[in-house]
């Protein structure tokens, strides 16, 4: 698979994962870019030990987790100020912003797990990416979804 095809296929997905982790468009763009630089560098060494998707999401997750090396501040759990005023335009935007907000209140590893789940990865793949057992992942996803659903209900959705 050539790099540009991979790039076109996965950019959106990787960006959404980073967005789930960082809750900040600029930070997410940077993280996604960094991920693809690594993908580009490591692609010649990729030997199909896992599916290409699993491999790319591994790089993306690790890039997110390593981010504190560059910036000591952890991703903020509040909505960025400038977005707060703009987002109320449509319901769709309001929902997605609120979803990011709720995810950003989770622990870092949970953020990655739920983002992967929402990106339609199956639990076996998520377990491979994060390095936890499948059972553990299943329990975590269940708990996280419950938390998120409750928050959405409280918010009146």
């Amino acid at each position: 698979m050539n790099f540009e095809t991979i790039y076109k296929t996965y950019w959106q997905k990787v960006f959404r994962l980073c967005m789930g982790y960082a809750n900040d468009t600029d930070a997410a763009k940077d993280l996604a870019q960094e991920t693809f630089i690594k993908v580009w560098k490591q692609l010649p060494k990729f030997r199909n030990e896992s599916s290409i998707g699993t491999w790319i999401f591994r790089i993306a997750s690790n890039t997110c987790l390593r981010q504190i090396q560059k910036d000591k501040k952890m991703p903020k759990s509040e909505l960025p100020l400038e977005i707060k005023d703009e987002i109320l335009e449509t319901n769709i935007e309001k929902d997605i912003q609120f979803l990011y907000h709720c995810i950003s209140e989770l622990q870092e590893v949970e953020r990655i797990i739920i983002s992967l789940e929402l990106e339609d990865m199956n639990q076996k793949e998520i377990a491979e990416i994060v390095g936890l057992s499948e059972g553990n992942v299943r329990v975590k996803i269940h708990r996280i979804k419950e938390k998120l659903t409750q928050k959405f209900k409280k918010n009146g959705n």
Binding site: K45, F46, S61, N62, L65, I112, E128, I129, G131
Partner: peptide
């Protein structure tokens, strides 16, 4: 690093 490790190993 040859293949990308999973997040647990990476940490």
């Amino acid at each position: 690093n040859k293949t990308e490790p999973n997040s647990k190993e990476c940490l």
